[in-house]
């Protein structure tokens, strides 16, 4: 048991070291530029799955959290000159708070009402930011990157390694939730909320906890965006794409296990990056939508489910 727990952290350290090694080995910055986006999607999908996959509450508002993360970072940077890690920590705190408050407002609602409420929250927050001149309002805001810090030789490479670290934090959290009493409670909620409550599960508290963790991760994922693009505006920060992607990547990967969203984000993220480069950016979002529908209709357990089935078939074939 403890071997497995350590195994995860050893693996995580290896991944982090590998990421740093890559920044030394590869000169071309574009790989990191594209890779960072995929890392961001892994965090968003993993975060979405904590509430959407484990508890069955479909959040359409990923972009609200992402956008608030972006603008928290911008505010901290502009007002206090805060360094990137402080911006991200601030965004995570903001995200947890936002998750808690929106949870209080919306988590008493079920099914579609909750989902629509999260759309409402997105539009309201976007409207607030549009009318907030200090961070650029509707026209957007230019951000000047500070010089890169040691031991990195380029800002993008540093962002890439920070992205990997954030993925590790997100996956560790998701994995912990899944394997602990929290995850069991959330699954009970997803299966039958009334029965869960009558079995002693503090449903509202658990949902609030899930929503806060999820929100903190989403905001933290948004925070480095301003530095990454050196620019932010509300249209791209609150882009519906983030909501669709987080949801689609989770469902396509498989929602019952923490590895599902990671797998979904990698597969879809890589496909999208390839399509954006080779064909057009519209086509890649179209692919996302079509894949989402295909999987939701045809493979409810996602890629993980397909893999499991394939594995079982192989095992049976080998036995006979």
């Amino acid at each position: 048991m403890s071997m497995r727990r350590h195994g995860f952290w050893i693996g995580a350290l290896c991944v982090l070291a590998l990421a740093y090694g890559l920044t030394l080995a590869i000169r071309n910055e574009y790989a990191f530029f594209a890779g960072f986006i995929i890392l961001q999607f892994i965090v968003l999908a993993t975060a979405w799955n904590i509430l959407g996959g484990y508890a069955g509450y479909v959040n359409f508002g990923t972009s609200a959290f992402f956008g608030i993360g972006v603008y928290t970072a911008i505010f901290l940077f502009k007002a206090l000159g805060a360094p990137l890690l402080v911006q991200m920590a601030g965004a995570a705190v903001m995200g947890a708070l936002l998750g808690f408050v929106t949870g209080l407002l919306t988590l008493r609602l079920h099914g579609i009402f909750f989902s629509i409420a999260t759309v409402a929250m997105t539009i309201i927050l976007e409207t607030l930011v549009i009318n907030w001149k200090y961070v650029g309002g509707a026209t957007g805001i230019q951000v000047l990157r500070p010089p890169v810090t040691e031991p990195f030789d380029s800002y993008i490479k540093m962002l890439f390694v920070i992205g990997v670290a954030l993925v590790i934090v997100a996956v560790a959290l998701s994995r912990h939730v899944q394997g602990s009493w929290i995850g069991r409670g959330l699954r009970a909620i997803r299966d039958d909320e009334t029965a869960a409550e009558c079995t002693g599960v503090p449903t509202l508290r658990l949902k609030l906890l899930a929503c806060s963790i999820s929100g903190a991760l989403m905001c933290a994922a948004g925070a480095p965006s301003a530095m990454y693009l050196q620019f932010a505006d509300t249209t791209s920060a609150f882009n519906l794409n983030y909501s669709v992607s987080a949801l689609a990547m989770s469902l396509i990967g498989g929602t019952s296990h923490w590895a599902g969203p990671v797998l979904g984000a990698i597969v879809l993220g890589v496909t999208q990056q390839a399509l954006t480069v080779t064909i057009s950016s519209e086509l890649n979002v179209l692919v996302l939508g079509v894949m989402l529908i295909l999987f939701v209709v045809g493979a409810p357990e996602g890629l993980l489910g397909l893999l499991r089935k394939g594995w079982a078939r192989l095992a049976r074939g080998g036995g006979s």
Binding site: R184, G185, R187, A188, R190, D191, D192, T194, A195, A196, T199, G200, V201, S256
Partner: peptide, 14 residues
């Protein structure tokens, strides 16, 4: 009203 995605044992563990 079972927790359908869980085993019988897990239902009790909840």
């Amino acid at each position: 009203r079972p927790f359908k995605s869980m085993t019988v044992l897990e239902n009790l563990l909840v």
